[in-house]
Design a protein around this nucleic acid. Structure first.
Lengths: 153, 153
DNA sequence: TATTGTTATACTCTATAACTATA
DNA sequence: TATAGTTATAGAGTATAACAATA
């Protein structure tokens, strides 16, 4: 059983490298770093504050300042003064940013999809169910909000 | 089918973030960056040259110089003059480096293993088989040497 | 006082280009 | 000439600590 787990964990680690490498390469083809792509991915359906972004990404707020600075300089995102709280800033994706991240998403769908070439529909469903349970368990352990992906705190 | 794939790809992407986050956190607990941990992982059972390391990691050779510099400064690895080729340098893990990466490996085994808590043996075998096929397919597409993990070229 | 965000600073990671030494 | 490795340089990404403005 230990032996089996050792194999399974190794395989999951390799799989994670595989997929992350795909995503990084696709982002680079679209002139994005992995981090900038992740930022845009988060902003696809949200306009969080800087502090919110820090929670989503699990980074210090001071790191977010530079991240958003660089993205704003490239017209990928923009800062909006928050109405409620005079201290807060909201971050929104620009049309240019959305176009880039949508193209990346399509490419990832295609490239990771190609790794599933020989899989039957039943096998796909099985893999989705099993991998889904791992993700669920992780969210449960960390207390991450599954809807938003944000970290607690 | 497209719908199913979209879900499956999303799940695999989330899974990859989950596992990478685990590994990064564990490395940090052991005072290692993700990259340094990966370097030590490669050196656990190999003594590649600098150029070899660049192939393993998919990085430029100039990046390897700094990476190995910093690891050597911390007594994690050491450079050895190659006997065959006067230009080459081989990189070996030190006892200290090995102790650190072994501790990381145990922690990853444990932490990722915890995500598989509710899984029956049959489910583990099924997940290993399915995920293994994805990794295999990736290696086949990229032409990566499965034994060593090195990139072609 | 507590929170939001920025600045200053420092370090790691990465690439490109130019260089040295060996083959 | 070609390959192995380093250096110089530049930029992204990240954290810690100190700060300003707002709550």
């Amino acid at each position: 059983m230990e032996r089996d787990d050792a194999g399974l964990v190794s395989i999951l680690v390799r799989l994670s490298f595989t997929i992350q490498a795909s995503m990084t390469a696709i982002a680079a083809e679209h002139d994005l770093s992995a981090t900038q792509a992740r930022l845009l991915g988060i902003l696809r359906d949200r306009e969080p504050t800087m502090a919110g972004l820090a929670r989503f990404l699990g980074l210090d707020k001071s790191s977010i300042t530079g991240l958003v600075d660089r993205a704003e300089r490239r017209d990928l995102v923009r800062r909006i003064a928050a109405q409620r709280d005079g201290r807060s800033v909201q971050v929104a994706i620009t049309p240019h940013g959305r176009q880039l991240i949508d193209a990346c998403a399509r490419a990832i769908e295609e490239q990771v999809g190609a790794l599933l070439d020989g899989f039957t529909d039943a096998e796909r469903r099985r893999l989705a169910a099993l991998a889904g349970r791992v993700v669920l368990k992780d969210a449960e352990i960390k207390g991450v909000d599954l809807l938003t992906g944000a970290w607690p705190g």
